[in-house]
Write a protein that binds this DNA or RNA. Structure first.
Length: 282
DNA sequence: CTAGGATCCTGTCAGC
DNA sequence: TGCTGACAGGATCCTA
């Protein structure tokens, strides 16, 4: 899915386009993609758009919330005078809405629309009241985001997972929030650590560098989000995405490392495709 | 408690 | 062409 930087990009886009708008109708095209009662949303004004890790939280005037999780292939697409699309980069950005992968969409009273697309149907929108939000399992187990985590706490967390590969540990949202497959690989590259190393093989300097790397690569991506999204909306599609600009290892297997000139390779760690530089990651 | 694997679902691509 | 298996920007559930 969209990882934390993309979800934050969506949050900012929604802040611009749907904050203070009133929901007129909700169309549920796939039952699995929508949890709760849509009646709680009708006629309600959107008063806040928040994010925790990779989850979006949309607050309504009646104090109900929508939690949106895009998982692997979710996208949010706003269509009004302007168009805004973010999330999973494949397809859907240019096609007519609702499209083949539209699962839920909203009509607003001013005539604009918001579409939730999700090819694989792993994502969802859930309608929750205050209590439901408070008791949500995913939100409750969510660890702090990298920039809210002290190096001491990151180090302590690593000690709890001595035998696990470092990549598996930073992908677990209960250990550190917001890291996904791209930034796990990019963070390990930044810290010059091989992603399958056991946690207890890292020294304190490597752990500190890894935490800083996760902050750096995710923040850089958030900062570039705005211009990236403009590229997606154009008819010529997703060329020039931030991946091509910022990724040092992700999907660069067979290419030259920009840091040491070595070869980028791909393997499998924690059940996920994993990219690394053979030359400078130890 | 942790670690590892299967699983949810649809689509695409490489290899026969 | 048609089939098959692998894989995909995530998280959960089950087992050991």
């Amino acid at each position: 899915m969209p990882e934390l930087p993309e979800v934050e990009t969506i949050r900012r886009g929604l802040d611009k386009f749907i904050l203070n708008q009133t929901i007129q109708e909700v169309h549920v095209l796939c039952e699995k993609s929508f949890r709760g009662n849509k009646k709680w949303l009708l006629g309600q004004k959107i008063i806040k758009i928040d994010r925790r890790g990779k989850a979006l939280l949309i607050q309504l005037e009646n104090n109900m919330w929508m939690m949106v999780h895009l998982r692997m292939t979710g996208q949010m697409i706003f269509v009004g005078d302007e168009k805004f699309a973010a999330g999973h980069p494949d397809g859907g950005f240019t096609e007519k809405m609702p499209g083949r992968h539209t699962r839920v969409y909203f009509d607003f009273t001013n005539g604009t629309h918001l579409y939730f697309n999700d090819q694989r149907k792993f994502g969802f929108i859930a309608v929750l009241d205050e209590l439901g939000l408070h008791e949500d399992k995913f939100l409750n187990k969510l660890a702090p985001e990298p920039w809210d985590m002290k190096p001491d706490d990151f180090w302590t967390m690593l000690q709890r997972h001595k035998a696990a590969p470092i990549k598996a540990v930073i992908l677990d949202q209960g250990n550190i929030a917001g890291v996904g497959n791209i930034y796990a690989d990019e963070g390990c590259f930044y810290a010059k650590i091989l992603p399958w190393r056991r946690c207890d093989s890292l020294d304190r300097d490597e752990a500190d560098l890894l935490l800083r790397g996760l902050c750096e690569v995710m923040q850089a991506s958030i900062d570039s989000g705005g211009s990236t999204m403009k590229d997606y909306v154009r008819a010529d599609g997703t060329k020039g995405s931030y991946l091509e600009k910022f990724a040092q290892v992700f999907r660069r297997e067979g290419l030259e490392c920009r840091r040491c000139g070595g070869m980028i390779e791909k393997t499998r760690v924690a059940g996920r495709g994993t990219h690394y530089c053979k030359g400078c990651q130890k």
